[in-house]
Design a protein around this nucleic acid. Structure first.
Lengths: 116, 116
DNA sequence: ATTATATATGAATATATATTCATATGTTCA
DNA sequence: TGAACATATGAATATATATTCATATATAAT
């Protein structure tokens, strides 16, 4: 191993500090759930109040099936929960970190005038 | 429009509160950058100290070209900056929100025992 | 009972994107 | 000057994933 700016000892120290592959994968999967505008829309609306699939579909302008599929992703990540009310399924947020991430995302894009 | 659990007035209020399509897209793009294990690895290492491409390649175990491509993505989102030192390019973090997001991701996956 | 409504889901399709390969540019060293 | 090194990037490929369509299930309404 031929390092540029660090030596082997420092490299070993660093590797100790950084999440191992599997954890890195988990963190990436978790964050990736927030990286889609449809899912983000769902989360922003559910942050305001619990909603059923149909209302989420109308609010976001997405087809019901698309919403259902994305709700499944959110459910699997345990970011949302739901209960049935008659034939409706009423979804709500189920994770304390969601609001933080949404706010950071909003804050960042508000600050940033991005181009390349 | 036939809502289930809200009326038209409430729906209009909600839509006012939620980011418009373009902003939603921007937020999603921003967060999505964190949703890849290779980029996450780079960010975790750069959080510790500035590093050159070669060292990042050795630390992460990824090919140099893969690192360069991902650094370009991070550069375009202005999450990292770099300066040249001779033939090296030394990268460092360039956004105050990065650490927060990394920590939330870590915290979440630490708490969560996730499956379906 | 029949019809309409609310939701879920498998399959197909289209699109995005991560990685590799080949290669170009610029720098250091012998 | 030539060889080795550090980095960047376009093209190709493979993989992931978001959406739609078709359809099934369950509940409500008439």
């Amino acid at each position: 191993m031929d390092w540029c700016r660090i030596d082997q000892t420092r490299a070993d120290e660093l590797k100790e500090k950084i999440p191992v592959d599997e954890e890195m994968q988990d963190v990436a999967e978790f964050i990736r759930v927030f990286g889609d505008p449809t899912r983000l829309g769902i989360l922003f609306y559910l942050r305001e109040l619990p909603l059923c699939v149909h209302d989420l579909s109308l609010l976001t302008g997405m087809q019901q099936t698309a919403i259902s599929h994305q709700l499944k992703v959110l459910r699997q990540m345990r970011l949302v929960k739901y209960h049935k009310e008659g034939r409706m399924a009423v979804y709500s947020l189920n994770d304390s970190h969601i609001s933080q991430i949404l706010d950071i995302g909003l804050k960042h894009t508000a600050e940033e005038v991005r181009n390349d």
